[in-house]
Amino acid sequence: MATYRLKTPISEAQIRKLEVNDVVYLSGTVVTARDQAHRRAIELLQKGKALPVNLEGLAVFHCGPVMKKENDSWVAVAAGPTTSTRMEMVEDEFIKGSKVRVVIGKGGMGKRTSAAMVKYGAVYCAFTGGAAVLAAKAIKHVKGVEWLDLGMPEALWILEVDEFGPLVVAIDSCGRNLFLDVAKKVEANRQRIYRKLGFQP
């Protein structure tokens, strides 16, 4: 495993170098989006309309942060990742339409997303679930917010980050998926556990 320090905008060539288990520290622009934001974004993209922020070469972060307003500007208080599997059904369209290069979340994603990452050149990075203060401290500036009508957790928060990480590359653009690898091992272990506990097969 290698450690990379990447800065947005990230090129396809940079993404193609990354392999599962690599560690990434990301600087530049990261935009949060979760369930409702994904849904709204895809509606716009499918109609050929632009998103309120151009995501090409940037990172999308599955995160519903706690933000507070200090002297008229927003400050991130806590900003860890949310469960990415909820976005599995729509992430491929989102990557295709937005040209985003990095998807950050927790818990991993499935085959649809993996296939889109191979096709369009993107990676999925796992950030430790719950490590919200560490994430918030890497956010240097809240550049803006869109779709605040969806509520604080669901809005698009446009964040300037410095050395955001450690992010573990869990799905690379060659089709490898760390979470699916672990799932395979777990499935084999299930049979060992059943035998140990004396279950009937």
Binding site: C63, G64, V77, G80, A132, V133, A136, K137
Partner: peptide
């Protein structure tokens, strides 16, 4: 860090 800054451990 959460203890140092008296900030919630997790955003959820």
């Amino acid at each position: 860090l959460a203890e140092k800054h008296e900030a919630p451990i997790c955003q959820d």
